[in-house]
C-alpha cells in the first residue's frame, strides 16, 4: 500500500489500453498519457474468436 502511495507522489505517465474515454479524461487533466489502439481479438465476437482458434492449432 505504501508503495502505491509513493507512486502518486511522482509525476504519472499513463499507457491506456481499452476504453479511449479514460485516456481523454486524463488528457483533459494534463496527465501525460498515450492511448494504445487495441481491441480484443475479433472485437469480442465469441463465435469468430472460436473459429479463429480452430485454425491456430499446431
Amino acid at each position: 500500500m505504501s508503495k502505491v502511495n509513493e507512486l502518486f507522489k511522482k509525476e504519472i505517465s499513463v499507457v491506456n489500453v481499452g476504453l479511449e474515454s479514460f485516456y481523454n479524461e486524463l488528457k483533459s487533466q494534463d496527465v501525460k498519457a498515450i492511448h494504445v489502439d487495441w481491441r480484443p481479438p475479433a472485437c469480442g465476437n465469441k463465435k469468430m474468436s472460436s473459429l479463429l482458434s480452430r485454425l491456430k492449432s499446431k
Binding site: M48, L51, L52, R54, L55, S57
Partner: peptide, 18 residues
Amino acid sequence: FEDALEAFVTKLEEEGEI
C-alpha cells in the same frame, strides 16, 4: 469475411483436417 471464415473452418472440419 465472417461467412468466409466460417465456411473455411467448416470445410476443414468436413475433411477431417481439424
